[in-house]
Design a protein around this nucleic acid. Sequence first.
DNA 1: TATTATCTGATAATGATTTTCAAAATCAAC
DNA 2: GTTGATTTTGAAAATCATTATCAGATAATA
Lengths: 150, 150
Amino acid sequence: MKLTFEKYIASQGLKMTRQRGLILEIFLKKEGHISPEELYSLVRKKDATVGRATVYRMLKLLKEADIAREVDFGDGFSRYEHKYGHAHHDHLICTKCGKTMEVVDEEIEALQEKLAGRHGFSLTSHEMDLFGLCPECREKEARVKRQPPG
Amino acid sequence: MKLTFEKYIASQGLKMTRQRGLILEIFLKKEGHISPEELYSLVRKKDATVGRATVYRMLKLLKEADIAREVDFGDGFSRYEHKYGHAHHDHLICTKCGKTMEVVDEEIEALQEKLAGRHGFSLTSHEMDLFGLCPECREKEARVKRQPPG
DNA sequence: TATTATCTGATAATGATTTTCAAAATCAAC
DNA sequence: GTTGATTTTGAAAATCATTATCAGATAATA
Ligand SMILES: [Mn+2]
Ligand SMILES: [Mn+2]
Ligand SMILES: [Zn+2]
Ligand SMILES: [Zn+2]
């Protein structure tokens, strides 16, 4: 992954820097979704001189290098995830506690292609977000119904 | 639809105003997706005294009244569509020209429920956006390949 | 018509992201 | 290793969609 990035950087006539190395390293360590601000704060713990703009710039580069994917749950915040060990997937999102699960359903994926084909579209990507209550929040909700809070 | 809104307004102890009536009327006339700015500019054509904030406030009310749905294609702009004659649907989006198509696949809808169920989630909503090239843009692309631009 | 809560538009504020810019760092060529 | 062209950086300012503020206007109700 580090190599992938260095290859990309070189191919674009860009330069490798201490900051880029650090941000990449921390980004790859983080499993799941991370916001620019969260990444910035993790980076600052290791090197408090790194600027916020550099983190944003790096995230853009990581997307271009196909190392990162931007995910958008429509809540006005952007988040990123790295692709190392994370093939394409969709998301189950709990609207109560915010927990997310990564899921894939091959049958759905195939039907998406067929659906697009019926309308003459050739697909390049998709985003599918399923919103609802996670098992824990469902349980909590059921408990409340049984014994309403006084 | 007008009645639905008036009923909602009343139920909340709110008031009907000239501005709200005008914005609603124009919003309902617009088929497809519309941005707050676009709606604002259409409204201003009829009444240049209406403020931008009122349009934003109205869009929020329309969502609450279940008359409007907010759609988000992850490009940083929010858009709205009214539900009159537009039951739930997903979107095919052309990444070249921006055209969108509304589509539904009942098989996919059913599989989404099953997928969620397997993970203990109960679904309340979902958003599925399929990105790719529309028929026209595919055709254009094919033409270019046949005869590269000099 | 009088009362009172809600609305409105102008304006300022917000907050995430981007841009600007001068100083610093990289890297290929000496 | 030094040089020098080019890119990068961090701080600060700018951007831009959206939201909050607030004093005056307006709607609903009696
Ligand atoms: Mn994910
Ligand atoms: Mn639509
Ligand atoms: Zn939950
Ligand atoms: Zn197209």
